[in-house]
Design a protein around this nucleic acid. Sequence first.
DNA 1: TATTGTTATACTCTATAACTATA
DNA 2: TATAGTTATAGAGTATAACAATA
Lengths: 146, 146
Amino acid sequence: MEGLFELADLLGESMQRELDTRGLTRPRAEVVWRLGSDGTMTQKQLSQALRCTPRNVTGLLDALEGSGLVVRRPHPHDRRSTLVGLTSRGKRASAAWAEGYTKLANTLFADFNSAELASFVRILDRVRARLRRVPPVRQSLSPTAP
Amino acid sequence: MEGLFELADLLGESMQRELDTRGLTRPRAEVVWRLGSDGTMTQKQLSQALRCTPRNVTGLLDALEGSGLVVRRPHPHDRRSTLVGLTSRGKRASAAWAEGYTKLANTLFADFNSAELASFVRILDRVRARLRRVPPVRQSLSPTAP
DNA sequence: TATTGTTATACTCTATAACTATA
DNA sequence: TATAGTTATAGAGTATAACAATA
């Protein structure tokens, strides 16, 4: 089933190519993507959503604010916090990506009949659910194991 | 078909977790992986295989040599070149990862009957082949599009 | 006293350009 | 003259720790 790993790599490369043509790095694109999906949030919430440090968020937002995709606004009730949201340009970018991925998926899965697709999706869902629960198999991957 | 993108992400995270527990970064692990798959090669060949600059290879090899996973040897016929290969520890690491991924795949795809699996693999292969040919859809992903 | 976001500092990956040794 | 690998320099992402403002 190495094909699955290769497919995952190919999907990653495909996404990367898209970002390169837009002059956006992947971490910055993830910020835009997240804000587009979940809407305005504080930097703290963003750092939790992206699973990175608050310091990291500061740097990414500085760059994205500079290129006009994102705005920082004071939190109305907590003056320690900063609310982050997409500009109209950021919203267009986020929506365009979502559309692009949908198109890509449609292209990739065109020409399959519905029975095949249903079977594929069923297996995909079960594999995905299982992957979420699989713990890292540390022992078998140890490069220092005897 | 967003499930496929999510699965790709999950697989990536799963691999990343493995590397984290080993104290290896992804770029360094890719060097070890590549040398394990294709055997000894020059730094030039490595930079082409990894699609990065020769300078980048130098840095990765410096680190990997320091941790004893890789050795540099003079090329027997061309004194400009350097041959790079895995140490025995590097070979163990590479083999252990391959085994780990096989185990993961086996875990993920246990409990499916052979007809389901055959159907899944067939679609997977066709999607993969198509993905290799799909060009980036630049227009539809443009954040600056009107 | 705890939390939010920042500055200070450091390490890794990556790239381009200039340079050395060799072909 | 061209090639392989290095040093020099720079920018992005990430982390920890110390700090300011606010709760």
